[in-house]
């Protein structure tokens, strides 16, 4: 469950956005899109691990890809790492997206917001492999931080929206869904909470899976840092790290 993985590549693909490829035997444990790894970037520097979602799993090459935004001390340090360096990786952790919710010939709508986009890549790959049709909607703040549009386009129809209108459609992912009247059997989403909330409210009677983000301590369910409430209860809870990070819409309070 824990390994010093070797960095194969660590390159910038958009403003502050990096694509990190790691090699190691832990990859053989990685199966489900939406799972994450908990990464200790260096022995000195930040104390805690960083939860980062898996973007691409390549078991034949024993490699996985993670996309992160260099923002805080940990990810800034990670962005300076070079091929050949190692990082301490714990994982894979959490419960990912249910690929089995769909069968061949059905349609999935994948909706990603900002740094929530990466886990949808492995999801799209696995869905397409089993014959599911995918439509992809990606939302970003602005043109400079758009990434992976062409990669997603190889799996299915891909739409991009930016909040400031500098690229693609101006507005939010929900505007794209309305404008193109996109339909689906199952919706999968990962991104900021307001986006997830909007999607859950928009499609209350459909099959919707949402991947949540929360500040974590241990990443394995022991510290109770990343809990969220369950509807209609004062004390019931789910842990984002070990019960999620993917939940069915309605399962937890957003």
């Amino acid at each position: 469950m824990k390994e010093n993985m070797t960095i194969i590549a660590n390159r910038q693909i958009a403003k502050d956005i990096y694509e990190l490829t790691l090699a190691g035997s832990l990859v053989q444990r990685m199966r489900t899109p939406g799972q994450f790894v908990h990464m200790k970037v260096a022995n000195s520097g930040p104390l805690l691990r960083r939860p980062l979602s898996l973007c691409d799993i390549n078991q034949e090459a024993n490699e996985c890809t993670i996309i992160y935004r260099a923002e805080g001390a940990g990810t800034m340090l990670l962005s300076q790492k070079l091929p050949g360096d190692t990082v301490d990786v714990l994982g894979p952790l959490g419960n990912g997206f249910s690929v089995s919710a769909l069968s061949s010939g059905q349609r999935a709508l994948l909706v990603g917001g900002g740094i929530g986009v990466p886990p949808l890549y492995e999801l799209a790959k696995q869905l397409v492999n089993k014959g599911v049709f995918v439509t992809i909607v990606l939302g970003f703040q602005t043109k400079d931080v758009v990434f992976y549009e062409e990669r997603f386009a190889s799996f299915g129809e891909t739409y991009v929206a930016t909040v400031d209108g500098s690229y693609g459609m101006k507005g939010f992912v929900t505007d794209v869904i309305h404008h193109h009247r996109l339909s689906f059997h199952v919706l999968y989403a990962c991104g900021p909470k307001p986006m997830l909330r909007a999607l859950a409210n928009e499609f209350p009677h459909q099959d919707v899976y949402l991947s949540l983000e929360e500040r974590m301590g241990c990443g394995v369910g022991a510290c109770f840092a990343c809990v969220c409430r369950v509807p209609h209860s004062e004390t019931a809870y789910k842990k984002v790290c070990s019960d999620g990070p993917v939940f069915r819409a309605g399962e937890v309070v957003l």
Partner: peptide
């Protein structure tokens, strides 16, 4: 007890707040 609202943790130099 449910405990406090999130965020419940924050990192600090060589430590963490919970």
């Amino acid at each position: 007890r449910f405990g406090n609202p999130t965020p419940r943790v924050a990192e600090t130099p060589s430590g963490m707040l919970n």
